[in-house]
Write a protein that binds this DNA or RNA. Sequence first.
DNA 1: CGCTAATCTAGAACAAGTTTCAGACTTGAT
DNA 2: ATCAAGTCTGAAACTTGTTCTAGATTAGCG
Lengths: 219, 219
Amino acid sequence: MPAEAKVSAKVNKPAKVEARAAAPVSPPLTERQEARRRRILHASAQLASRGGFDAVQMREVAESSQVALGTLYRYFPSKIHLLVATMQDQLEHMHGTLRKKPPQGETAAERVAETLMRAFRALQREPHLADAMVRALTFADRSVSPEVDQVSRQTTAIILDAMGQENPTPEQLSAVRVIEHTWHSALITWLSGRASIAQVKIDIETVCRLIDLTAPAAP
Amino acid sequence: MPAEAKVSAKVNKPAKVEARAAAPVSPPLTERQEARRRRILHASAQLASRGGFDAVQMREVAESSQVALGTLYRYFPSKIHLLVATMQDQLEHMHGTLRKKPPQGETAAERVAETLMRAFRALQREPHLADAMVRALTFADRSVSPEVDQVSRQTTAIILDAMGQENPTPEQLSAVRVIEHTWHSALITWLSGRASIAQVKIDIETVCRLIDLTAPAAP
DNA sequence: CGCTAATCTAGAACAAGTTTCAGACTTGAT
DNA sequence: ATCAAGTCTGAAACTTGTTCTAGATTAGCG
């Protein structure tokens, strides 16, 4: 009946199809579709690495990834969706990389700060890419909530990993939320040239103190 | 020689002209120019109050404020500049309002949290306006840094006011920075529907604990 | 194989931010 | 009062995100 995989009905956008590598269940993608999706994300990241948010132009992404503009929009319903998906992609890499070398700090706060600073250094290597991803993330409106939430969960997972906490308390989860807020906002101030790298470091270290504040003795 | 006030040279954009009400020194504006500026900001806030960021369309702002499109761009070189200036305007009101009834809390942390929650409630009354202003603020790139910085300073001033600290320590200033980060980011998650009002409250209260953590005995 | 529904493509069309330009209007100085 | 320089206006043009359309392709099923 359908063709190239029944992604579902008309309204369906492979966006939801973005079954993360972990659970490609919802709407299975054809090999060619999966390939297209990868080409698109690759082109997006490449263009972003050059000139940041503005350099990711939908027509160029379509051309670079050898896909028609309409198809690009079928996969990613907006530029913001595309960039947020790009961020999901990069975050997975990052999480994998971070897993390999766990932070060395004594306290949970130290380990989290160390992990975030490591991530920050990675972003510094591709500042334009960071710009595109972070701007998209904070500019996203309600229509992108599910995807942004996914990014948020991934970030939370990274931080909890660094804390080494199996089952964090509600208080600790609040602290993690605040750390994420600070992380995103600090990145923005850095990207827009209003804060130095050193300043970001201080902010991260400052907010990480909240962890110790909320991490009492283990049961 | 010039006309309607010598704003300066060719490249000059009254943007810099935005000498806040406090210090209209740099390039003095004609009365008519000041009036135009007010009309523009008013139209901007009005449109924003309706439909948020997207509803603030430059052509409409120009029409509503009875100014040519080109003139609008002379006063505010981009939509982002316009909305950030709108935020500066609103922040001043807010600061004035907050001054009148200082927060009641015992500790500095309580007072800051109370103040921010009061501001938050004000934003809730005009969620669309809040959306427009906050989105603009976080989307702003380097070209808007001076204006965004001004907003940041104003916010810092409000928080320091609430703390009741005359000369804060560097540590306290760091805490304030982190509070601002959390404030902005929490607003974004609320505006994009990813966090409830209650959640924002918790985040604010959580981060405000940092103040007590960094506020030792007075000298 | 041949069908049928969905997908993909190429390209036009539309929307809103931004730029540009010629001409009318103001302003402040002489 | 006059004039030079800067400002405002109105309208068109340009850019880039987004939508739409008609026709070519593809996938899976009988």
